[in-house]
Design a protein around this nucleic acid. Structure first.
Lengths: 152, 152
DNA sequence: GCACATTCAATTGCGAACAATTAAATGTGA
DNA sequence: TCACATTTAATTGTTCGCAATTGAATGTGC
């Protein structure tokens, strides 16, 4: 005779960590949207730019490994960044299979314009930096355990 | 003279909580995929079914508020669930603007087949229930603060 | 050197996700 | 009652995200 099962029922939406993560990702996206609109970027494009601002002139594959995305997602996205004059795509001469992604002057310059984005997000989070770091590390640890299961 | 700034630089990918959430959501999706394939559902479709298993015969808007999704996403998704004979879509007679979503017998029956999904996810998380509940509550609190900022 | 497998990016097709608009039904105020 | 605003789904167009396949370049084992 199940009584007051709802708070424990693993089949209930509100008890699922995955939905929490899924809906939090969308909430972040909505907060980022107006900030990134001013830069002319979508959120996934912003992620690619973050990778390139750290290190330039890397093959598509490296970007994919960093962001957990494949060429089916990245190829059209990078073509859009190229059309926006933020990156250049050139075949590697050492290995003609690889396409190297390099920032243009405009792409480099955009880093300065994007500098204020993280603090706007921090403000929207309404949370201390140390709390955010703690949650972030827990989520990353969880993500890495999930990815380990997939790899096996 | 900034030295070893990388561990603090808010513009670094690995320091961004949003990327942690974003990549964790994709990792969950990849773990769910083989489990949901056997049910013939995608993850967003599974979320809609979770809502309907809790309460049936609700307007599209209610589902949207629960999952933070709009009609642009839900209308085609619900049509696919209807084509799969899992739900029925009927105009409300009291308010002809509303479309009520009800489970079919097949839709109800699928709940049993889906019963083992949460524990498979728990196993993949390689984590205690109490730890997951703690992280989940923190993420939900963060999500709700973000959504509050958007609403204003 | 040559058959074979592997790697890498591109492509195709499908299902989200969302902004913006449309159209119909309902609610409201004068 | 009637003009007007609001609510609700549906629609259109763009961008992700991924599975599956393709084709070219590279690596390998004999």
């Amino acid at each position: 005779m199940p009584r007051k099962l709802s708070t424990l029922d693993p089949q209930r939406l509100d008890n699922q960590i995955c939905f929490a993560v899924y809906s939090a990702a969308h909430a972040f996206n909505r907060v980022y949207k107006p900030l990134l609109d001013r830069l002319g970027l979508t959120y996934p494009q912003y992620l690619v730019m973050l990778v390139l601002w750290e290190r330039d002139d890397v093959p598509v594959k490296d970007i994919g490994e960093r962001l957990f995305l494949d060429s089916g997602t990245l190829t059209p996205l990078l073509k859009r960044l190229e059309a926006a004059h933020l990156v250049r795509r050139t075949r590697s001469s050492e290995d003609e299979r690889q396409v190297l992604i390099a920032l243009t002057a405009q792409g480099h310059a955009l880093k300065e314009k994007a500098r204020s984005v993280p603090q706007s997000i921090l403000a929207a989070s309404d949370c201390s930096v140390s709390e955010l770091v703690t949650i972030k590390d827990e989520i990353v640890a969880l993500r890495d355990r999930l990815n380990a299961v997939i790899g096996e």
